[in-house]
Design a binder for these strands. Structure first.
Lengths: 347, 347
DNA sequence: GAACGCATTTGGATCGATCCAAAAAGATGA
DNA sequence: TCATCTTTTTGGATCGATCCAAATGCGTTC
């Protein structure tokens, strides 16, 4: 229990338990080779001396660090909060840990972060790439053999390595056809400027769904970021047009919630005067007033899947690139449904 | 530029640049001892071979890792998103990195996370302790000499080591006196169950402010967590009472936003029928409808201050415990001000 | 009792950087 | 030219764990 000065090492444990360093090492690795009596003696020493395993030293000799890097482009976005929770749950079960960093959608900062993570000798990288990430970043990772899993976004037209995402395209198709059934013709998509694959996928999925329905696509991109404030401001602009859309599909729930605020400010009732559908189905969606319809992307499940895939990569180094596209589902609430709306008393 | 097989080491750099390992090491440490010509030759080798510094190996010999651990109790809370951004900004300037982990307010999980972080040989720990954290955790950290900075919450009645927080007490005093000026008498506080120092500080500050104003405190705690949903449900309950309060001060903005939703559902107008004030002044506060009044806690500044304090601890090992309590300010918006409310058209 | 098989345990080399005392290379003055 | 002082550079020991080949102990069997 004492030990205030220097740190306790394997050698100290060995002396305390009356065995060699090697044996102690075997015990710590949970090797089946050691006798039970020895194991308990060593574990007692660990307790008695307050030993803390030195991963850095171990890493020097053995190849793995049991540490993954996670880089997201916006930690403040609740989607990533939930995703990170999914990753951590999975890693915790597998006795791994993660380094989390946020790039703020800046490729230069992202590059620095990745370098730092490599210095820590992470075993694999889960990357939600910043907009305009150069493919040379992935080249570098390939070249030095660091497994990388792109999540939600990918660099280039199609993911070249492992990828985990959500089937936004199918979600949009369902959303558009629901809106059409409700009688909407002027359905607009409010998304980012197309610098990320997630933007492009939303645009393509929406466009295809609109064409299938025989409607004219109406894509509103902008230099805005993808926040509540951007949704608010952009919607105020849009609704001021001579012939505004009657339905808005937004890049994510944050923007959609901003759109609801804009409608409220304009004294329009979301769901009656203008339908709004978000993407992600965050916790807030169900709680807003009126409740927000949303395409659920299940961030927790995506985090789990990405972490599991990363762990697989470690066990099977040659694994050919996996593309996991998880299902989405449309959660209809008052913001985009006349009937649901009527079933509640009006504001 | 090649290097696909093994990793590049100091020795490879030394061979490529025609110097010894030691010299290369000095260059990487930016020592002033090496000649400029040598330095450029070595840096060229770093570029040419795609060398990545091995922090683990360095750590084995030298005491420091340039890595801090950050443990928060709820990464999904936007307060901590902003705080972590503040920490990272500061660390980035100082060439340090952070390991971020979220305890989910579970002391057992928190203990595991701290152990993992210690295995990584972090230089210091920034801890927003989980509820009911035992002080033995801090004892252990002390004993092994790991500097720890408690942030926003502290274990025990008063922080025993370094602490960085916000002056919630002053914020509450200002909030209460504003509400009194507006003619409120029944002002309730909606907060956590008192398992954390942050809960207790809110209760004490509120109680004192109420007594100063000659009013009867009305504290509503609960087994609820501190989310939007909890704020919604609790407010629905409270407003159903025979003589409900006319003003609510909520533990944080999330709960306050939930309270606004509850009022809307009850067809009550926040700011006119019942005033609501949150704590944190998150981005969302200004955007809600009506806009939420809030006591600003400046999470980004708190993150910066905590990180700076941690860096100071590293430079000055004996530093006596610092208690930094940052100012708060009351941001008044329509949710708690008759006048502001009248200046906008009604819902 | 020697030989064998099996379950455990062990010492020494090793990973990639840092530290340190000491050597080498230049610069200066007598 | 040689001693002296600086400025640079260097080899070997070292950090704390892992790996591996070899040693040990012990019960069986011939």
């Amino acid at each position: 229990m004492p030990q205030s000065g220097k740190s306790v090492t394997l050698k100290d444990l060995a002396a305390h338990a009356g065995v060699s360093r090697s044996t102690v090492s075997l015990v710590l690795q949970e090797s089946p080779l050691v006798a039970d009596s020895t194991r308990t003696r060593v574990m007692a020493a660990v307790e008695a001396l307050g030993y803390v395993y030195n991963r850095g030293a171990a890493t020097l000799r053995s190849a793995r660090t049991a540490t993954l890097g996670v880089v997201v482009h916006d930690i403040a976005n609740p989607f990533f909060g939930a995703m990170v929770a999914g990753i951590d749950d999975t890693l915790q079960n597998a006795d791994h840990v993660s380094f989390l960093a946020s790039s703020g959608d800046d490729p230069a900062r992202q590059a620095r972060l990745v370098t730092r993570l490599r210095e820590q000798r992470i075993d694999a990288l889960l990357l939600c790439p910043a907009e305009n990430t150069s493919s040379s970043l992935l080249d570098t990772l390939d070249r030095c053999g660091l497994p990388c899993i792109e999540v939600m976004r990918h660099v280039g037209e199609t993911p070249r390595g492992h990828y985990v995402g959500a089937d936004i395209r199918a979600g949009l198709a369902r959303a558009v056809s629901h809106l059409v059934e409700q009688g909407h013709h002027r359905i607009a998509l409010l998304t980012g400027a197309g610098h990320s694959s997630a933007d492009r996928e939303r645009m393509a999925g929406y466009q295809q769904a609109m064409e299938t329905a025989g409607l004219v696509p109406d894509i509103r991109t902008g230099r805005h970021d993808l926040t509540r404030r951007a949704g608010l401001e952009r919607t105020l602009e849009i609704m001021a047009e001579p012939v505004p859309p009657t339905a808005l599909i937004c890049h994510n729930d944050l923007m959609a919630l901003g759109a609801l605020l804009a409608l409220a400010r304009l004294n329009l009732t979301p769901g009656l005067d203008c339908a709004v559908i978000g993407i992600d189905d965050s916790d807030e969606a169900a709680l807003s007033e009126p409740a927000l319809s949303s395409i659920a992307t299940h961030p927790h499940a995506i985090g789990r899947a990405a972490a599991e895939l990363a762990l697989q990569c470690l066990d099977h180094p040659g694994l050919e690139p996996q593309h996991l596209v998880l299902e989405t589902s449309l959660h209809l609430r008052a913001s985009a449904d006349h009937f649901l709306h009527r079933s509640r008393e009006p504001l």
